[in-house]
Amino acid sequence: MRVVHETDGGGRPLATKVDVADSLVSQGLGLMFRRSIPDDYALVFPFDEAAPRTLHMVFVPFDIDAIWLEAGDVRAVERLGGWTGYGRAVADTVIELPAGAADAVSVGDRVRIDGLTG
């Protein structure tokens, strides 16, 4: 599984080590209590429909980039600071990445998750 930022030249991988938070527990925990994540890592939160989705950084001691998607279209991109970061946007999928991984991603771009089923 991988997360790909679609570009005019095809696509640029944002992450090749991808976990899916598809249960209530895994979605509630997110990245809490981890000390770090690898540079090529993503945590993907798939939902059945688009709705306001909130992320918090309580018990996450490092900065991350967050991408909110609706049908593959980027609706918001934010850098969230460790411990105190907070973000909210409408999405059917949310992706958490290491800080800096989404620097080239902008609202209106397309991001796909190769290998995600469901």
Rank of each mutant, 00 (worst) to 15 (best):
M1A: 08
R2I: 04
R2N: 08
V4W: 01
E6S: 04
D8A: 14
G9Q: 15
G9C: 15
R12L: 11
P13I: 00
T16Q: 04
T16R: 06
A21S: 04
A21D: 08
D22I: 08
S23I: 05
S23D: 03
V25P: 02
G28Q: 07
L29Q: 05
L29N: 05
G30H: 01
M32T: 07
M32V: 04
F33M: 02
F33E: 02
S36H: 14
I37S: 02
D40V: 00
Y41F: 09
A42W: 06
L43C: 12
L43D: 09
P46W: 07
F47A: 13
F47I: 11
E49C: 03
E49S: 04
A50F: 01
A51D: 11
P52M: 11
P52W: 15
R53G: 10
H56W: 15
V60L: 00
V60Q: 01
P61R: 03
F62P: 03
I64M: 11
I64A: 11
D65S: 04
A66S: 13
I67P: 11
E70T: 15
A71H: 15
A71E: 08
G72Q: 02
V74Q: 05
A76M: 11
V77S: 10
E78G: 09
L80V: 06
G82W: 07
T84I: 12
G85L: 07
A89I: 03
V90D: 13
V90W: 11
A91S: 06
A91T: 03
T93R: 05
P98T: 03
P98N: 08
G100M: 09
G100A: 02
G100H: 10
A101Y: 01
A101Q: 01
A102V: 11
A102E: 05
D103C: 09
V105E: 10
V107N: 08
V107L: 06
V107P: 13
D109C: 08
D109S: 08
R112C: 06
I113C: 09
I113G: 12
I113Q: 15
D114A: 11
D114M: 09
D114E: 15
G115W: 01
T117Y: 05
T117N: 07
T117W: 04
G118P: 02
